[in-house]
Design a protein around this nucleic acid. Sequence first.
DNA 1: CTGAAAGCGCTAACAA
DNA 2: TTGTTAGCGCTTTCAG
Lengths: 370, 370
Amino acid sequence: MADVAERAGVSTSTVSRTLRGLSTVSPEVRARVEKAARELSFAVSRQAASLVTGRTGTVAVMVPTLNSWFTGSALSSLAPLLRAAGLQLNVYEIPDLDERTAFFEHLPARRNADALLVFSFDLTEEETARLDDLGMPVIYVSQHVDGRPSVYVDDVAGALHGTRHLLNLGHRRIAFVPTEGASGFTFSSNERLLGYQQALTEAGVPLDDDLVVSTRTGSKRAAAEALGTLLSLREPPTAVFAEQDEVAVALVWNLRRTQIAVPERVSVLGFDDQPLADWFDLSTVAQSPSEMGRLAGELALKLIDDSDGDHERHIVLPTHVIPRGTTAPVAERATAPVEAGATVPVDVGATTRAATAAARDGQSASSASE
Amino acid sequence: MADVAERAGVSTSTVSRTLRGLSTVSPEVRARVEKAARELSFAVSRQAASLVTGRTGTVAVMVPTLNSWFTGSALSSLAPLLRAAGLQLNVYEIPDLDERTAFFEHLPARRNADALLVFSFDLTEEETARLDDLGMPVIYVSQHVDGRPSVYVDDVAGALHGTRHLLNLGHRRIAFVPTEGASGFTFSSNERLLGYQQALTEAGVPLDDDLVVSTRTGSKRAAAEALGTLLSLREPPTAVFAEQDEVAVALVWNLRRTQIAVPERVSVLGFDDQPLADWFDLSTVAQSPSEMGRLAGELALKLIDDSDGDHERHIVLPTHVIPRGTTAPVAERATAPVEAGATVPVDVGATTRAATAAARDGQSASSASE
DNA sequence: CTGAAAGCGCTAACAA
DNA sequence: TTGTTAGCGCTTTCAG
């Protein structure tokens, strides 16, 4: 910076003022300084600047993985926002418990960022507390943390509407397939399970633990096992609601391989609406991670500027049921004699009411928690 | 740090030495300092440290998008490597030409990182030159830049082997479907086209420009158009080699919707081997972005430590043909009377030879450019 | 093995 | 509007 100052024939203060765009610089001097800076291809060292301003010009994000639709979409909409605000994006990828322990041990973000965005981690009380005195705003993304700024989707409502969609199609034996994530990493399992149960209860359908079978994500084999468990029940389900699209697709894949027609014999519903769902024409409950990334970013910017402001601290995003080709009205059981004994009698009146309700379904889901 | 020093009853120099793990500290004092640091949950400010060391402790990456299989995989294997080395990961997402111009205008990475990894950008001479005097090692990932450290896949060989696989199955009318990316962003189109042409030439199959039809990525509709062009040729192809899995899958999707059996009537081959390929049982040419991320990271670490060292500056990764369910021997044309007039006579001897060669194909491809 | 002192490159008062 | 001065928090000589 001294070089620039010398070349432009001014003091370093003036150079600093010019480069930060302060208005208290005469146009003539400004031009001279900018020219000199360009010629020397000078760039301010954020390190040095932050030393005195106390701001790092950096936002840190903590993500379980960089290699997922969710994280990718969210960061992709967060990044331009930060760039526009002149902030850097710093990524901490914490794929497992070891790394996580190490992260909380040292909290490397301390003093090295102006805000931290925590993605999809199911933190302990203690961990949350540690983040509390990190000395910077911490925003929780895709999760709800009491009393802290959070941006998340209404998973209960999403699962509720999804399950209603299946009920409205006449299904009564509806399975739910949650994902057993790596411990400590939440994928909203509990809340989605809750929504599923709520929908059944409000429809007067008894809960049946046999219909809840968990699986691992990203494994066709694991999905096959879960499916096997369900298909070998005394009364197998006519519809399966998977907690994640990937699992739903694995179920469809396995069902079709076994010549069990989807959706004719079994309906399958996912949750997420990632691109894979579209490829497989999967009915699903959509959420928007890019919207979450954007809103979390905006919240972060606000909190950095004025961390005591009375901003809305909890942002809840809606979900939308997207009916595609893997959900259909429950089959007439007469045509499937093999499983005849396993079938719940369908009350025709209910089916009619269901059809009517189904017509409204997309809409009512759209307005969920808005 | 002064607080820690006071609490431990030592000078700040000693605290600094302890926290940096220098061996010139007595065990007793070390223990005291570490205790004090923990109690105050003190973390060194990289900003202040870098001001005097001249190192930022940060590696910057420039990526076209964060929301893709390729970037996600690569960064996912890069991140732990950097973390293990105590380095931060700074991401610049440059999705379009405007952002790109802005990036090169200001080069925000200057003085704010110890190395820069440039992903998949088709840079101009001028841009490369600007990066040259950035004052830090610059590593090019997924692209070949003369005279600069680069990590990339042998696209020519990959496409060559992929095409050979199709030739070995008896195909003679083989189409190639490149992707017209956003201008300035390369997806190795040219090199893959080259490999395709080489394979045809070495097999004595004349090149036919009509068989090269480009499309956009991520659009079923665009794929349908490209397909339409090919299927309405006087002599339509019996096999299609797409430059990217996503396009290949879109082609399969459209073909099946039109009741054109894949692979019985038309074989389809992709390039990438992303998860989608597995879902669709797509034959493809595999590359490994995670391997690329890892190697690029290691190279970056080496170059940071000693930027004049005689490290291998160009790392070329192999590709592997993965035969799955969308490629098969060319159909006997007698069974397809509709297109009989459009069929190239198949020399039985060639088919036999091809079958033999096909058996070797996986192997020969595996050893490509290793 | 430890401490004192100098200074990294910048910004923020304060003066002019 | 501009320049002078005093640090920001750390590391690194250099003494001891």
